[in-house]
Design a protein around this nucleic acid. Structure first.
Length: 437
RNA sequence: GUGGGAGUAGCUCAGCUGGUAGAGCGUCGGACUGUGGCUCCGAAUGUCGUGGGUUCAAAUCCCAUCUCCCACCCCA
């Protein structure tokens, strides 16, 4: 081991911490069986469905230079200004654990020359993100996102429509309950600034009736005031101008197109003119999907179009749209509505006794496993009654009984745990029998 | 970053107005050394989240701190 690798450990004297209990860092957690089976099921479904829409998987670094995120997400956003895990690398460059995936996908698109591929390029990625927030229900400091992006090509509403259809299809396949899609258009570089000014002016008129947070946002980000949940602000906000009435013709046309696309695809949506996304790079269509059983952090998916981002990152002008699913929340919702995975089972538990049969037991286990069965082979000899007890506790379907009698006669005993019946089978018969279930 | 609630065995929790820990479940062992689920018996495991204070005496009262949960905020 190099000296450098050891640096930083055991530096400060630790007086009397001999029996220190280690625990996971705040906001992080272990995912254990059987819950991990549910995670796998979700990720497999995503892979299958996304593949059917022509998406390929991209695997990305978990950390990047800090300015990639600062540039794309926006310096003023909470995510960048106070929630990133940022540290200096050995050579002083500032790097950050990724708080989301879109910036990295765009970086990769440019860096790996994906403009050369047939457009649009459709990518998805699944993995952990990091944000230093106060944990609560459905919110962790390390959380998982299932992310999909459509890069390049046109801004045809069909692209947004298909993307949204895909998530909805995914949720439906999983049996997610209480799914609600909300959409909005927040305009583009042409029309949004004008609307923001108008909104700011209107908000100024009622400034003294707003709370301190909203007052501050009149200057920093008026759109966010629309997001406020404060009871006494609702009436005022309801009277504010709607962005839909102030979109430029191109944006308005595009928004109509997206809604038409959703209707064509039978996707139910609700328009929410107050839906504003928190990340700077969004433009035009934005959407959010909520589901049942989630507490106050109830968005399982958020996304939208970000046509200007690629240029901002030094790439060619490239249209793009995408979404991120909060996998932790998705799974939470599935669990809250009763989708609990069964604990792992064994097909066959091998109850062997007598050192003479051990070799046979090992061979049987290997052959059964090769044939695709889940097999438990106790590593030491046990009392017979206990072995069956273990088989029972592990939820095994069959117990393969191997003792002197079986080995000498060549007729093995297979016991069905559910009803207690037994049968004698030769080794080839056993495999046949199990295969034909 | 700001509030509220909670930390006692692996899990769920009891422990009244201070007298240095208990139940159920689970785990393991036995009754039952070639037939499991039931029943019965037995065992192990806690510096009572951590540190300090009050007291002859603290799981219990006081202060601090950490962690978890929920909400604000923000977002997936």
């Amino acid at each position: 081991m190099s000296e450098g690798a050891a640096k930083g450990f055991g530096k400060k004297p630790e007086p009397k911490e001999e029996r220190r209990k280690f625990q996971a860092i705040k906001g992080t957690r272990d995912l254990l069986p059987p819950e991990t089976a549910l995670w796998n099921r979700v990720e497999q479904a995503a892979q299958e469905i996304f593949a059917s829409y022509g998406f390929g998987e991209i695997r990305l670094p978990i950390f990047e230079t800090t300015d990639l995120f600062a540039r794309s997400i926006g310096l003023e956003t909470d995510v960048v200004s106070k929630e990133m895990y940022t540290f200096g690398d050995r050579d002083e460059t500032s790097v950050s654990l990724r708080p989301e995936a879109t910036a990295s996908v765009c970086r990769a698109y440019i860096e790996d020359g994906m403009q050369q591929l047939p457009q649009p390029v459709k990518l998805y990625t699944i993995g952990p993100m990091f944000r230093r927030e106060r944990p609560q229900k459905g919110r962790y400091r390390q959380f998982y996102q299932i992310d999909a992006e459509v890069l390049g090509g046109s801004d045809a509403p069909g692209i947004d429509g298909e993307l949204i259809e895909m998530v909805m299809m995914f949720f439906e396949r999983l049996g997610l309950e209480g799914v609600q899609l909300e959409i909005n258009s927040i305009g583009d570089k042409q029309c949004r600034p004008k609307y923001v000014e108008l909104l700011r002016a209107e908000l100024q008129k009622v400034k003294d009736q707003l709370g301190p947070d909203s007052q501050r946002r009149i200057e920093t980000n008026p759109l966010r005031v629309l997001d406020s949940k404060l009871e006494n602000e609702q009436k005022l906000i309801a009277g504010m101008p709607h962005i839909a009435d102030h979109l430029c013709e191109a944006c308005a046309e595009n928004y109509r197109g997206v809604k038409k696309e959703l209707e064509l695809r039978g996707v139910k949506y609700r328009e929410n003119w107050r839906l504003v996304r928190g990340l700077d790079y969004y433009s035009r269509t934005t959407f959010e999907i909520t589901a049942k059983g989630l507490g106050s952090q109830n968005a399982v998916c958020g996304g939208g179009r970000y046509d200007g981002l690629m240029e901002l990152l030094g790439g060619p002008p490239t249209r793009a749209t995408g979404f991120a699913i909060g996998e932790d929340r998705l799974i939470l919702s599935l669990q809250e509505t009763g989708q609990t995975p069964a604990p792992p089972r064994r097909d066959v538990y091998i109850a062997w006794m007598g050192t003479k049969v051990y070799a046979t037991a090992i061979r049987a286990a290997r052959n059964l496993r090769t044939a695709g069965f889940s097999v438990e082979l106790p590593p030491v000899e046990q009392k017979f009654g206990k072995a069956l007890g273990q088989a029972d506790k592990l939820g095994a379907r069959y117990a393969l009984i191997l003792g002197d009698n079986e080995v000498s006669s060549g007729e093995w005993t297979l016991k069905t745990l559910a009803d207690g019946t037994q049968q004698k089978l030769t080794e080839p018969q056993l495999l046949d029998f199990l295969r034909n279930l």
